[in-house]
Design a protein around this nucleic acid. Structure first.
Length: 334
DNA sequence: AACCGACCCAACCGCAACGGT
DNA sequence: GACCGTTGCGGTTGGGTCGGT
């Protein structure tokens, strides 16, 4: 049973016994080097095959089974923005693998969009008969794409600035930042990026960066170059307590995400600047909804962002922001 | 029951990216 | 900067399943 390659390594479907061996080994020793793993685990497989089996099938945090309507919408929206970047899309759906999303797209969603008269690759309408809502999508996708690019640039710039200023201090020299950048991109948000680089492979979300920017801006510009563990812990606690709380009650979009930052913000300057900062995050987003007669349809939704100070707490309302933006990681491209 | 085509999805393959030397 | 080993990613394949005839 089973195929073998020229080096005698097994190929093809995994047996329950092989799964058990791999699971038991990773449980005891972790992943480590995939190349060395098969021999140590007593498997006649190549490391690549073991890695794939673990990532796409055996990992305990994988959610299996039917995709929910919310997941479908998220995939379609993200595909419009990111294209076939399955791993990036999978990052927004933490319990689904890129392979699973890719398969679901190719076998189901792509066909559904085609049936609706939408080109699944460009997300543009194919013919005259397409809904007027769909006609707006490409424009919105471009807009969103530009937004994501801009956010990625922010992260890149921050990283560069961090490296330039590394081991000195976190003062930002405005002349090193393009004057073309919008207000929020000119703000320093370096400590959180450094914290992420040092402690986690998880990418920061818009929300995380918002917190970082506001926190840094509220400080007296000069920050210690090395982040003490107490600061890191504090950051982690702030974020842990402030994941946006979705109040979605059913499948219809009525997102109202609230972030509370439990820090002291008595900085008058920050309070003055806050409205324009919030404005930068507001805009129009494509939103897919399920229509019982016509299947999926695309609507424009207006997401707006507002902030209030209350008892030294900053409350950020992500009004009508789609989850995929509020909770989305931002690509850190070198 | 047998055949066939469509569909689904786990797994493979090749290439790109990354990190260490 | 070049090289090399390893890992990650996206496209593709192949085999099992299902439904229609």
């Amino acid at each position: 049973m089973g195929r073998f390659d020229k080096e005698g390594l097994k190929k093809g479907p995994w047996t329950p016994e092989e799964d058990r061996k791999l699971l038991s080994f990773i449980d005891k020793h972790g992943c480590g080097s995939w190349r060395a793993l098969p021999a140590k685990a007593g498997l006649q497989r190549c490391g690549k095959s073991c890695r794939l089996r673990w990532i796409n099938y055996l990992r305990p945090d994988i959610k299996r089974g039917k995709f929910s309507l919310q997941e479908e919408r998220t995939i379609i929206q993200l595909h419009a923005l990111l294209g076939n970047r399955w791993s990036a899309i999978a990052a927004y759906l933490p319990s689904r693998t890129d392979n699973e999303i890719k398969n679901y797209w190719n076998s189901c969603l792509k066909k559904r969009l085609t049936k609706m008269g939408i080109d699944p690759m460009t997300h543009k309408p194919n013919g005259e008969g397409s809904s007027k809502y769909v006609a707006n999508l490409s424009h919105m996708a471009e807009w969103e794409s530009a937004r994501l690019e801009a956010e990625a640039r922010l992260v890149r710039k921050s990283k560069i600035l961090f490296h330039n200023n590394n081991s000195h201090n976190y003062n930002i020299n405005p002349s090193t930042i393009s004057q073309q950048l919008p207000y929020y991109q000119q703000l320093p948000c370096l400590d959180i990026l450094k914290a992420w680089q040092m402690t986690s492979t998880k990418l920061p979300t818009i929300n995380d960066i918002t917190h970082a920017i506001l926190r840094n801006n509220s400080k007296n510009k000069k920050l210690d170059s090395s982040i003490p563990s107490s600061t890191l812990n504090s950051s982690e606690n702030i974020f842990a307590n402030n994941a946006p709380t979705s109040k979605v009650g059913d499948d219809h979009q009525n997102l109202h995400n609230l972030s509370t930052i439990n820090s002291c913000f008595e900085d008058d300057h920050l309070q003055t600047e806050l409205p324009s900062f919030m404005q930068e995050f507001s805009g129009v987003f494509p939103e897919y909804t399920q229509n019982s007669t016509n299947g999926l349809q695309v609507d424009n939704i207006m997401g707006s962002c507002s902030g209030d100070f209350e008892d030294n707490k900053l409350l950020i309302n992500w009004n009508n922001f789609p989850n995929y933006l509020v909770n989305s990681p931002i690509d850190c491209i070198n």
